[in-house]
Nucleic acid binder design. Structure first.
Lengths: 236, 236
DNA sequence: ACCTGAACACCGTTCAAGT
DNA sequence: ACCTGAACACCGTTCAAGT
């Protein structure tokens, strides 16, 4: 649909297309998400975005303060949508797992969100995540005094995963993922590395072959089991 | 020591100082750490770095491929140093806690490391962290089949914390930290926010008053308890 | 072989001039 | 009130010219 380099000569004299509908923060955020998903984080520039919106780069500033605000709003929107799509479950433990997996799937579909979430502390998107996690912990019967630490622990875990996912995607955009991990695993088997890193050497094949989503899910289970154990066992 | 804006007139005609010792990757990395610690992430430019090194920006490329490599090498060096300083402990559970706290203290002293660690996946610094965690898990008696997931969970948790720490520091560089958290907590108490986020509303005061290091330490305990529970209980 | 620093190809952001 | 797009003040990186 885009006319990248050379356009067919048009019968009427070429004229710079100009948007007819009004520009809005919503439209900008939507266009930003499209660019980010299609071409990655580094492709989102004001020039690219304003071309997609058929306007000038300056026009964007009439609706959003700066690039950071565009990214924050885009991430927030996707987090809200992802949470709205999580089916409610009468079983509290299934509920918290469903929420955590929704986050994982969101980062899979939009890896740049992972980068954005570690850019501003306690931004709107993080509040939604914290709230969703906390609500389910409450339903799970976690005592009040553990709720803050428990919710933070789950949130920090998912943020760590999100960041790694984003950077892996940034680096391995074209490469296929398993070849990329195989390369790293092979590096762990190099004599020099292996000699000083025996644990990693032993884990190399698992790094190359593991199922990311399963491992994430297992990590969530570890933390949930820990929360349950500490709560039952009478404290930290 | 730096001559920032105006220099005293010197008796001999002013001459651009030129380094006498040879430039090296090590010297560049050391200078980069100094700049990053003193002035923050955004202050590290090739121009600033080459000024600190008394050379031209192009000279740096004779020793390191690009900015990413400088940051990765700087983070790696600090992680290695931090781990070298952790005293060995005969008690395995103290050992893993000491390693995890060493990471936390590292991010406190050099917040920019948190940003860097989520920039490249499985970079050298992460390998060191993974290895250190894994070695202690082995000592703790975690079964082989759980080691990869357990080590990854702890690593992802610490990476999440590191990222948040870095972004909080970036945003609140001059502001004092407690005032910054108070502001966010107050936002959670706003009528509009509180109505749709009751859990966060309830946690607001804890956000403002909690001890970061203690909470981190409690989070580590949750995960360790979960690993112990799952291992003892016969599987995920 | 290494250093120098101007030049290049970008950025995000601003702002006078338009409608 | 909003849009336009050239201009500004930066970046990281390159490279011809020096030593």
């Amino acid at each position: 649909m885009l006319c990248q380099d050379r356009c067919m000569p048009s019968p009427t004299p070429a004229r710079r297309s100009r948007r007819t509908d009004a520009l809005s923060a919503d439209a900008i955020i939507e266009a930003a998400i499209t660019v980010l998903d299609a071409e990655g984080e580094e492709a989102l520039t004001f020039r690219a975005l304003s071309t997609a919106l058929e306007t000038g780069p300056g026009a964007i500033y009439n609706h959003l303060a700066n690039k950071q605000e565009i990214l924050a709003a885009a991430a927030h929107r996707l987090v809200v949508h992802a949470l709205a799509d999580v089916p409610s479950d009468p079983d509290a433990e299934n509920g918290i797992r469903a929420v955590m997996l929704a986050f994982f799937d969101l980062f899979g579909a939009h890896p740049w969100v992972g980068t954005q979430l570690s850019r501003e502390p306690w931004q709107a998107a993080l509040l939604e995540m914290f709230e969703a996690i906390g609500t389910h912990l409450e339903a799970l019967g976690v005592e009040e005094r553990y709720q803050f630490t428990a919710a933070s622990s789950l949130l920090n875990f998912v943020l760590g995963v999100a960041g790694q996912h984003a950077s892996a995607t940034r680096l391995a955009r074209d490469l296929d993922r398993s070849a990329f991990l195989r390369d790293i695993a092979d590096g762990w088997k190099d004599e020099a590395t292996a000699a000083s890193h025996p644990f990693s050497r032993r884990m190399a094949d698992q790094l190359a072959e593991h199922d990311d989503r399963q491992q994430y899910s297992d990590g969530v289970d570890f933390i949930l089991a820990g929360i349950a154990a500490v709560t039952a066992g009478g404290g930290l």
